[in-house]
Design a protein around this nucleic acid. Structure first.
Lengths: 196, 196
DNA sequence: ACTAGACTAAACAGATCGGTATACCCGTCC
DNA sequence: GGACGGGTATACCGATCTGTTTAGTCTAGT
């Protein structure tokens, strides 16, 4: 019922994989549990025994997506050489974002898309979405502090806004290289804050 | 069938109003035509005679929302006194955005939300969404040119990204004053471009 | 050998989906 | 006064929605 990401049964694993692909690719409300079960090679009974409800499955999908994104982002940031200036780590978040978009985010941020489809404040997925954005802002703020900028809170807000703006424009194919634009603006913000 | 905004039948007018409120408030896929017809005090027959299909109704909803936004934005920008520096007109777009969000965009950009729900590239609404973003970028670019900045295209990209970033963060309630953050960054970008 | 857990197969609710059909009412314009 | 357009009311279509039920199989651990 709880279905933590660790220790999923094989069938539950396939359900979550199928759900992730379908929810992200077609939208949450446009995908029924029958289709998910079929794609996973699983009966609805199993799906409901493992996840309890569609709502909970949606939340599990977002939770795992969040975990993957955090792991990817921190790993990419930690690749920058220790000798490099700490501001490079901030810029690395934009390079990580660009690669992430190319690889698994062509339709824009899964969390923003989910929020668009789930207006009900009581939906369990809303909590996951809020956590995701809060974590990212906290992470950016920490990087700013490490770079010894004057006002880390303000800069973190700006960087978060640049991340989100780039992601949504990427999904809309409205401009050629939204992440490049964001990175350029982030660099200027860092310079202004005396971090580079 | 085409249902242009001008010259709508009284019943069609009520249908479009009801559809706008429901589509924006609950999401497009979560709202059925039966509910829209009921809310409008209209039969489904009338709805289908006026709009032809749900797809077309969705497109009409977005088209009208776009018209309202354009009218609002240009009117607000044109309020800035003619004697003021042209860069003020660029900043005025952020003040207009802030007021718009407060008044009728609490759930974020209706176009971004719609795009999240309509992955099918052939959906008639996709065209409306693309047009909306293209128009906004063109408008921002024109304001930049009027302000005699060095690279109006680059600046327009940046401003568009700030608009979108602010809108999505507003919808997620992730930071306190996203439009304020955007406006602040826009001002710096204008200064750097020599427009102020 | 027994059992608990993970699973399949298939039918069944009751509601709602987008869309269509039939039949009728009423005001306006010619 | 007759045609016509805009509208109502109601029923229907097949498909799909989330979720449940009954019945039974297979496998791993003790």
């Amino acid at each position: 019922m709880q279905a933590r990401t660790e220790a999923l049964t094989p069938a539950a694993r396939r359900v979550l994989d199928a759900a992730a692909e379908l929810f992200y690719g077609r939208g949450i409300n446009a995908v029924g549990v029958d289709l998910i079960a079929k794609r996973a090679g699983v009966t609805k009974k199993t799906l409901y025994e493992r996840f309890g409800s569609k709502e909970a499955l949606v939340a599990a999908y977002l939770r795992e997506r969040d975990e993957r994104w955090r792991a990817w982002l921190t790993a990419e940031v930690d690749k920058s050489p220790p000798a490099a200036p700490p501001a490079d780590r901030v810029l690395a978040t934009f390079d990580a974002l660009a690669a992430w978009m190319r690889r698994e985010n062509p339709r824009g941020c899964g969390f923003v898309n989910a929020a668009a489809e789930l207006p009900d404040a009581g939906h369990p997925a809303r909590q996951v979405i809020a956590d995701q954005k809060r974590w990212l802002r906290g992470y950016l703020r920490q990087l700013c502090e490490d770079a010894d900028v004057a006002a880390p809170d303000e800069l973190a807000d700006e960087l978060l806004l640049l991340h989100e703006g780039a992601t949504v424009l990427y999904g809309l194919s409205a401009v050629a290289d939204p992440v490049g634009i964001s990175r350029r603006m982030a660099l200027r913000a860092l310079e202004r804050a005396g971090a580079v």
